[in-house]
Amino acid sequence: MLSPADLDTLWLTFKVASLSTFLLLLIGTPIAWWLARTQSPAKGFINALVSLPLVLPPTVLGFYLLILMGPNGALGKLTNALDLGALSFTFTGLVIASVLYSIPFVVQPLQSAFNSIAQQTLEAAATLRASPLNTFLSVVLPLSKSGFLTAGILGFTHTVGEFGVVLMIGGNIPDKTRVVSVQIYNHVEALEYTQAHWLAGCLLAFSFSVLLVLYTVLKTPPQVQQLK
């Protein structure tokens, strides 16, 4: 059975993933919109930067974040100066890391949804008195519904599955940074295979059912190239 400690890690994982997904959609939408519409020469650079977490080992990302957010890092110094303390080994630090780690999984489905909206559709809205913001809200958003659903689900599930980054910057602090994937590792280290089975089974069932929904309910399921 799941122990209270296991349930705590599940709850913490859910909190991290929900908050990260919310922030990812908030940040990812303007980035994806810009990438889909811009002709700026910086597009390639930003695209590469956003996609980096797809290929970078999580430990590398975690390592740099640890340096950056630690007491001697640029971000750490800033948060120290603001009396917030270093962000490494905190819940906030974990959320920031999750957002960076999962950003391509949110930006890419959004970008391809935005790409599929013809420029002329936006122009038609402009000739019908809709301001650019109004066009985005009343034409682009409804037309990108499945893109947002895909982005949200992928962002959430990918955050649930993170392990390397958490270990590097979050460590293993109960109720603060100990997420499910880390807890499974703890159980295995302690040879508590039954406990590990329960948690692993939960994650397996969760991930599979989410993807099942994604591929059966959505008319246009995400493509492999979009995922990786």
Binding site: A118, Q120, T121, E123, A124, A125, A126, T127, L128, R129, A130, S131, P132, N134, V139, L143
Partner: peptide, 17 residues
């Protein structure tokens, strides 16, 4: 800007939402 001009525009491809 276009959205503040009192015009009607019909595109070559019917642009219904």
């Amino acid at each position: 800007p276009t959205y503040q001009r009192n015009l009607g525009y019909v595109f070559q491809e019917a642009n219904l939402f």
